[in-house]
Simulated assay, not measured.
Amino acid sequence: MAEPVELRKSAIAWLKERTSDGLEPLTREDILDFTYQGEPFVLQSTQQGIRKPRDFEAALSFQTVYRPPGQKRPYEDDIGADGLIRYVLRGDNPNHPENRGLRQAMELQLPLIWFVGVAMVPARFQVVSPVYIVREEVELKRFALAPVNETDMLPEMMTGSAMEESLRRYLRRETKIRLHQPVFRSTVLIAYENHCAVCNLAHPQLLDAAHIVPDREEFGIASVVDGMAMCKIHHAAFDGCFLGIRPDHVVQIREDLLDEVDGPMLRHGLQELHGKRLMALPKRNAERPRHDLLEKAFERFRSKAVDGVA
């Protein structure tokens, strides 16, 4: 067996490369492709939430199961104003072997791999790594996690003292970039089967998860019903109020653009979509965009269209 610390680093580096630095989700089968020095090595537990390999001093990874729309993930209510994520201990026994494995990772300041479920059938996971356990909140039976790189781990994070506001802002930003945005993008694109809702383009590298209304500075991950899959052109047009979507899923183009002459992109990419229904929507009604958010976004579009300002 190789030195576990080197194996841990190799696994994290492999996952970063395989997921385009945490952007693309992986299936369980994808994750099983990892090998070290020519030998397969299991990174993810299939039965328990936490994996501590036999020869490792501490836990290597943990996972959060997927929850369909309308059901909260276990951690969603536990992202604090300090920007740290809370992960509840397994069971009521703080000395359960899995809890001890996480505690040892905290004491040794070892990086962990977090598999966040974003879909089922097949099960797919967003990979957030490295993640460090900053401290244990014993009375609340949970750990506080920071999704930061090793070079960004600061001594202040490892203390129980109040954090400076600048550090809180940094942690909130990192949590948004490395957890919220990738998980939101994956859940939306999976629901739309990697097709743009507006034009049906089917190349995920050219697709975004567009927020129906501007992304709020709140804690927690937006649900699939808060967004729509859009290609980058239509995402920009939607955000800029060049393109609107009625609550009945009909596309509207700003009136002044309909009379403008500016080449084939404008004609085929925007003008010809006016009055047409969306080309792609989730098959499950529970994953379709919220009616009230579409109303709010369309009212914003209409107000901008009246002013002729994007």
Results as ranks from 00 to 15, higher is better:
Gln47Pro: 00
Asp21Glu: 13
Ala11Tyr: 07
Leu15Arg: 08
Gln44His: 00
Ile31Phe: 03
Arg51Glu: 10
Val42Met: 12
Phe34Gly: 10
Phe56Met: 07
Leu60Tyr: 12
Gly38Tyr: 07
Tyr66Trp: 11
Arg51His: 15
Ile50Gly: 02
Phe34Ser: 10
Glu24Leu: 13
Phe62Ile: 04
Ala59Glu: 06
Pro68Gly: 10
Ser45Val: 06
Glu17Cys: 00
Ile31Ser: 02
Phe56Pro: 04
Ala11Phe: 07
Ile12Ser: 10
Glu39Lys: 15
Gln44Ser: 00
Leu23Thr: 12
Gly38Ser: 08
Arg54Phe: 06
Leu23Cys: 03
Thr64Leu: 14
Ser45Leu: 05
Ala13Cys: 01
Arg54Trp: 03
Ala13Val: 04
Gln37Cys: 08
Pro40Cys: 02
Phe62Ala: 10
Val65Ala: 13
Phe41Ser: 05
Glu24Arg: 15
Arg51Cys: 08
Gly22Lys: 07
Ala58Met: 02
Gln44Tyr: 00
Ser20Gln: 13
Gln63Ile: 02
Pro68Thr: 10
Thr35Met: 02
Tyr66Glu: 03
Glu39Ile: 04
Thr19Pro: 09
Asp30Gly: 02
Gln47Lys: 14
Leu60Asp: 11
Pro40Ser: 04
Lys52His: 11
Leu32Arg: 15
Ala58Gln: 06
Pro68Phe: 11
Ile31Glu: 02
Thr19Ala: 09
Pro40Glu: 01
Asp33Ala: 14
Thr27Met: 07
Tyr66Phe: 15
Gly49Ser: 04
Pro25Lys: 12
Pro25Ile: 09
Lys16Thr: 00
Glu17Asp: 14
Ile31Gly: 00
Asp55Tyr: 08
Pro53His: 11
Thr46Leu: 10
Glu17Gln: 14
Arg51Leu: 15
Gly22His: 09
Leu26Trp: 12
Ile50Tyr: 05
Arg28Tyr: 04
Leu43Cys: 05
Ala13Leu: 08
Ser61Tyr: 01
Tyr36Val: 09
Arg28Ala: 12
Ser45Gly: 15
Val65Asn: 10
Arg67Trp: 04
Gln47Trp: 01
Phe34Pro: 10
Arg28Asn: 03
Thr27Val: 03
Arg67Ala: 14
Ala11His: 06
Val42Asp: 14
Leu60Lys: 11
Ser45Phe: 05
Glu39Val: 12
Val65Gly: 04
Ala59Ser: 14
Leu23His: 10
Arg51Met: 12
Ala59Tyr: 06
Pro53Gln: 10
Ser20Gly: 02
Tyr36Leu: 07
Glu24Lys: 14
Leu43Phe: 05
Asp33Leu: 09
Gly49Cys: 01
Ile50Ala: 00
